[in-house]
Nucleic acid binder design. Structure first.
Length: 413
RNA sequence: GGAGGGGUGGCAGAGCGGUCAAAUGCAACGGACUGUAAAUCCGUCGACUAUGGUCUACGAAGGUUCGAAUCCUUCCCCCUCCA
């Protein structure tokens, strides 16, 4: 159905990962030849350590890299220690606050942990490895850099970059510091080409401008054609970016978000998004996905369970995913208080308001009171009022189940 | 350096001496309806509370006033135009 030669391109198109490419035929041919000769193509994905974990919003390029590797290619993961010190202006109106050195190091570690879940690291032919652009930028000399790289850029061209243009059009300030971001990312690409023969950069479509900065620098300075390939920015059917739950990011790293919550995020995907998510966030073969996507109405819940399990498995491991699934089934289908739920210690006579505050479901007693007035607080699935006190008599099998609304459940034991 | 405009709740954005814990929209949350979906409808949305109130908030610090998000002074930050 598709006119591409390479497995990678065909798979990307089939699963909805393909947004755009700097040279479709060229890249396809390059990959095809690599596949034919059994030499891995080398490609990189970069991310700046502005936070200490990736979240679901970053997952699309990560899953793309996973396939890239599975099809016999070698991914390089770049952590932008240097570029994080500049701040990517894409999609922002304000200069990022500077991070302390400790914070930066902490973030780099967290990011590596996130990355490592999706591609295989090691020393083998297609194994991935980390690089940090701080390694080559920290000692660079300003004048040398300007002469080496600056000569190949025109300000005219730099101003046309979306991230720059939109800032200017919206009359928001853009510091000279941020203006330079594209040069650094462009330089990264060339550096990886020189060092590791990396010919392609794979990323989310918001990186398009920064990618072309690299491919152009490669052509002018290193006389080589570099390729850029981007994934669409995935939104749900109401047009919102994926990856937020209750206004909070759905984190990849387990210390930032319990596996049960990660599972629940995918379990609660809207009907209209199920097929898209199965293709992107799981490893399931396309035939299986087509079968699941055909399910309707209540049956689609089966597809959602599989989606949640499969997506969680990749990120958190099979055992954890299974446990999350069992918890969800116990809570929602059997009405029990399962193992993975948040838990706090029982104190006899504890006020219900304090209990909800302590378990972290509400931020103030006032909020808990309001919820109580709206019948939003339950103990063992029975609505209680704000004066309710927890006693030993509430225990069922040694524990008390408390719920806020229909979806947030916790245990007091 | 000069002239003008502006900094308000998670975001956007009104208010410009009392009736302001601050309109409206978005986001979020609870309820109804459901399928742990979507859409819709109703409600909530600073904190504490003996529910009567108390406290903290409209860039920061002072001041005027019975009373300030609103007026004055100084400072910080941003935008636009001129040099």
């Amino acid at each position: 159905m598709s006119h591409f030669k390479s497995q990678f391109f065909n798979l990307m198109v089939e699963r909805g990962f393909y947004k755009s490419c700097t040279n479709e035929d060229g890249f396809d041919t390059y990959l095809y030849e690599c596949e034919k000769s059994g030499t891995p193509a080398v490609g990189y994905l970069g991310s700046d350590p502005t936070g200490d974990s990736l979240h679901v919003g970053h997952l699309v390029p990560l899953m793309m890299m996973r396939w890239f590797q599975k099809l016999g290619n070698q991914p390089i993961l770049l952590v932008g220690g240097a570029t994080a010190r500049i701040g990517d202006p894409s999609g922002k109106d304000k200069l990022r606050p500077f991070l302390s050195e400790e914070q930066l190091q902490h973030n780099v570690d967290g990011l590596r942990h996130s990355f490592g879940k999706f591609v295989k690291m090691g020393n083998g032919k297609t194994d991935s490895f980390f690089v940090d652009n701080w390694d080559w930028f920290q000692n660079i000399n300003y004048l040398n850099f300007l002469r080496d790289v600056g000569t190949y850029y025109t300000v005219n061209r730099m101003l046309t970059l979306d991230s720059v243009k939109s800032r200017l059009e919206r009359e928001q300030p853009m510091s000279f510091l941020e203006f330079n971001y594209q040069l650094l990312q462009g330089y990264d690409f060339c550096e990886l080409y020189t060092k590791y023969g990396c010919r392609c950069q794979l990323a989310g479509d918001d990186q398009w401008g920064n990618i072309t900065s690299g491919t152009e620098l490669g052509r002018r300075r290193n006389n080589v054609e570099l390729f850029g390939f981007t994934t669409p920015i995935i939104t749900d059917s109401s047009g919102k970016k994926m990856g937020k739950s209750e206004g909070n990011a759905v984190w990849i790293n387990e210390d930032k978000l319990p596996t049960y919550n990660y599972y629940q995020y995918f379990r609660n995907i809207g009907d209209a998004d199920v097929e898209k998510c199965l293709k992107i966030y799981t490893d399931l073969p396309i035939d299986e996905i087509n079968r699941l996507a055909a399910l309707k109405d209540q049956e689609i819940n089966e597809a959602k369970k599989i989606l949640a399990f499969e997506a969680t498995k990749i990120c958190r491991g099979e055992a954890e995913a299974k446990q999350a699934q069992e918890t969800a089934i116990a809570v929602f289908e059997q009405g029990l208080a399962g193992g993975e739920l948040p838990q706090i210690a029982f104190v006899d006579g504890m006020s219900i308001l304090d209990a909800f505050l302590e378990i972290g479901f509400v931020e103030s007693k006032g909020e808990a009171r309001r919820l109580a007035k709206q019948s939003g607080l339950k103990v063992n699935d029975v609505v209680v009022d704000e004066n309710y006190k927890l006693t030993a008599a509430d225990k069922v099998d040694g524990k008390i189940k408390i719920s806020q609304g229909k979806k947030k459940h916790g245990i007091i034991a």
